[in-house]
Design a protein around this nucleic acid. Structure first.
Length: 790
DNA sequence: AACGTCACG
DNA sequence: ACGTACGTGACGTTG
């Protein structure tokens, strides 16, 4: 592509009209009567193109296109590393060439003393002859690059829409799919129906086939089953399997729980490799039938997640569309509204037909799992993530499945009591607020609240949102001194949050049979590799304020058991110390120093012994900021200090911790070049934001680039630790169970007699999960409820 | 469904 | 002049 100058001449010689599309005005030198340059420019949001041929260039510059090289030679171009003559800019260069015609002629005249230049300009030109000629050479587009191709090689051929669609899908170029009208270019059923055969086989045949191949590629077919005692409110009604050897798919219908028992031995055989999607869900569904799923080998949602964790569509249909370019609905043929005759017979026939289609769909799913496994496995290898997949994320499935299965015991009575207390307080405070406001309104409505505070009461507006006045905590805290109603609203908000999310919100999730809450722990959601928790979210149970923290009292172990809780001390800063290699931070951790105090001492130039509480707390905020990818605005906001002051803190910090400064600078650069960042274990996150035209978006990308290796590596380490703890408990045949993970915290509900052993296992597993240049420290505590875990 | 708010690490 | 700390999920209101 470096030879478009040559190509333009070649095209001209062949008698063609040549158009060069370029964003670079340097190409103007190529313009002739037959060669036109098209330059795009934006006008009111729309991109238009201007066309330049020789005539237009002469009109615009008063020069032949070729002479623009001479202009460039004098003027230079910083972005192309062309030096030019110092002190000569666009205007001067242009007028000089208009006058003298070329650099050569200019210097000829200069040497003969005929140039009529004066002062500084004369001096500059005389002293930089070599630079001028060098610049001209550098700025000249080569017209004689050897090329082998002939005109025929450049012929535009009919493009392969299917292939392009496939590539766009893989790269998530969703806008381009529409721009080039590629929707509906998927492989049709006619093309892809021969991908595999669908056959009927008896249970016995299927079992034999799976046992022979030591592998089971399957998709579980479920329907809703809302029985309150179920952990996952679904039941298995069938499953499809794919036989790799014969490329045959089979659908097995499951009428009853007993039906599934025939497959128990296969599911429980760890030597039969299970290949599927959403193995966590499968694990629980089978566990509900007293079948222990073993031999979890490959989950295509997990492999796809590792390939791109910001890909949020990891359902089977989306993956089949993305990787195999098959539209499932089109494939099974969804034209169901054919003959809607009101006859029982017809309905029955329809039913049979629909069942068949349904089964074909599930057959396609298991075929898809097989193909996607092949594709993703190859890609995992290409990006060096096999270890991450097989040794961290796959084993994590079983740990998380067990956490969900075990659940957290909840003292329902205590929860109800707390709820009553909150409701009473809410009633009181609601009346106080109505009175202070002089009217009744919905305090939960930010719109109504805004009207009361900022229109009726005329309080100063601190911040606005898209749709009106902001009334968030930061704003209210600043308004506190203006009117006593503010404190009441803050209290109301706190009570309301606690009652709606943590009392009323939790109640429906308590399983009537186990009296436990069985949250989901998702493994393929976050951009960094962290776990997330839903229905309910047990990773955001209050802890910062006393009243909210009381929610933790309702979570307690069952009789004769005790919680053993362990959390990593400063894991993210330790990871940062390791990957940045910063000597000071490393020393602090090696010597067991107080890291925030050290930072305070460095930022505020104060001896360690003299660091005040405030200084330490400010430095702590700076440390947090560093982990998040710091900005002066953010830090200033956090600390309530000016942006300028915040900037001083940051500059001082980065001067003191030179290794961290270097890391921060390098990581953005590296991420921009490669398009992604990685954790220590090669978990990747692509950051396309870094290529955005929008400054804000790019800034965000830069912060994400700094944060992801830190947060992500910490998440990887925690997963390793959990796997170790899980396997050690299993190996020793202990009865204690892991019940919770909150990013840097892990909780085991331990049998009293096992608790000392569990403490040791946890401490050991967490601290030796990986060896860094700094020690990893886990703090262990035990208690009779979550609240008392320190 | 989107937004504002607020709970956690 | 822009308008910002990183990563999540749930609730209530509003359109």
């Amino acid at each position: 592509m470096m030879c478009f100058g040559t190509l333009s001449r070649y095209g001209e010689k062949q008698g063609l009209e040549v158009t060069i599309l370029s964003g670079d005005r340097d190409t103007f030198q190529l313009a002739t009567d037959k060669v036109t340059i098209r330059i795009p420019h934006t006008k009111g949001g729309k991109t238009e193109t201007d066309e330049y041929n020789r005539e237009k260039i002469i009109e615009k510059y008063g020069l032949e296109p070729k002479q623009l090289i001479d202009v460039k030679g004098l003027q230079g171009d910083a972005s192309d590393n062309i030096p030019g003559v110092p002190g000569v800019g666009e205007k001067t260069a242009l007028s000089l060439i208009q006058k003298f015609g070329s650099i050569e002629n200019l210097y000829e005249k200069v040497e003969k003393g005929e140039a009529d230049l004066k002062g500084k300009q004369k001096e500059n030109i005389e002293n930089n002859k070599e630079l001028a000629f060098l610049s001209k050479t550098l700025g000249t587009i080569n017209l004689e690059v050897p090329i082998q191709d002939t005109l025929d090689d450049f012929k535009v051929e009919e493009w392969d829409k299917k292939k392009v669609l496939e590539i766009f899908k893989e790269l998530n170029f969703n806008r381009y799919i529409d721009r080039f009208s590629l929707r509906g270019e998927e492989k049709s059923k006619e093309e892809s129906k021969d991908l595999f055969q669908m056959v009927d086989k008896s249970k016995e045949e299927v079992i034999k086939l799976i046992e022979e191949q030591k592998q089971m590629i399957f998709y579980i077919h479920t329907i809703e089953d809302l029985k309150p005692e179920k952990i996952i409110k679904e039941k298995i009604v069938g499953f499809s399997i794919f036989d790799e050897k014969t490329q045959v798919a089979i659908y097995i219908s499951v009428q009853s729980e007993e039906d599934m028992q025939d497959f128990k031995a296969i599911f429980e055989n760890k030597d039969i490799k299970k290949i599927s999607i959403n193995l966590t869900k499968t694990y629980i569904l089978l566990k509900q039938l007293e079948i222990n799923l073993e031999g979890m080998e490959y989950d295509i949602a997990i492999s796809s997640y590792i390939l791109n964790p910001t890909n949020n569509k990891l359902e089977i249909e989306r993956l089949i569309e993305q990787y195999l370019n098959i539209d499932v609905h089109e494939w099974i043929g969804q034209e169901q509204e054919e003959k809607q005759i009101n006859l029982f017979d017809a309905m029955q026939a329809n039913q049979v037909e629909n069942n068949k289609k349904e089964q074909e769909k599930y057959a396609l799913y298991s075929y898809g799992i097989f193909k996607i496994k092949e594709i993703t496995l190859k890609k995992l290898e290409e990006i060096g993530a096999l270890k991450l997949f097989y040794e961290i994320d796959m084993p994590t499935i079983e740990v998380l499945s067990n956490m969900q299965w075990n659940g957290m015991y909840v003292d329902e009575e205590e929860l109800n009591e707390f709820g009553k207390e909150l409701t009473q307080k809410l009633e009181t405070i609601t009346q106080i607020i109505y009175e202070m406001a002089g009217e009744e309104f919905n305090i939960n409505s930010t719109k109504q609240l805004g009207e009361i505070l900022f229109e009726k009461m005329k309080l100063p507006v601190i911040k606005k949102t898209k749709s009106g006045y902001s009334t968030d905590v930061d704003v209210l805290e600043k308004l506190k001194k203006e009117d006593p109603i503010i404190q009441q609203i803050l209290d109301y908000r706190q009570l309301m949050k606690l009652n709606s999310t943590y009392v009323e919100g939790l109640k429906p999730y308590i399983n009537p049979k186990t009296k436990r809450i069985h949250s989901f722990f998702h493994q393929t959601i976050t951009a960094t590799g962290r776990i997330s928790s839903t229905e309910p979210n047990l990773q955001n149970i209050p802890t910062r304020f006393e009243l909210g923290k009381r929610v933790r009292k309702v979570f307690r172990p069952e009789e004769k058991k005790v919680y053993v809780d362990a959390d990593y001390s400063q894991i993210e800063l330790r990871v940062l110390a390791h990957i940045s290699g910063d000597e000071h931070m490393i020393r602090a951790f090696k010597e067991g120093q107080d890291i925030h105090k050290q930072a305070a001492s460095k930022v505020f130039k104060t001896p360690m012994e003299e660091v005040s509480k405030e200084q330490r707390s400010d430095a702590k905020a700076v440390n947090f900021g560093i982990v998040y990818g710091i900005s002066d605005f953010g830090l200033g906001e956090q600390l309530g200090i000016s942006r300028k002051k915040a900037k001083q803190y940051i500059t001082e910090y980065l001067d003191q911790y030179a290794g961290i400064k270097e890391f921060m600078e390098n990581i953005t650069k590296e991420a921009t070049e490669k398009g992604y960042v990685e954790t220590l274990f090669h978990r990747r996150r692509y950051i396309p934001e870094l290529k955005s035209n929008n400054y804000m978006v790019r800034q965000f990308g830069s912060r994400a680039a700094m944060n992801t290796p830190i947060q992500g590596t910490a998440a990887d380490i925690m997963k390793i630790a959990m796997i170790k703890v899980y396997q050690e408990i299993k190996k020793r045949g202990l009865q204690s169970k892991i019940v919770l993970q909150v990013h840097d915290e892990m909780m085991v509900e331990a049998v009293e007699t096992e608790k000392e052993e569990i403490k040791e296992i946890m401490k050991q597993s967490m601290e030796s999960a990986i060896s860094l240049t700094v020690p990893l420290i886990a703090d262990i505590s035990e208690a009779k409820n979550w609240y008392d875990c320190k």
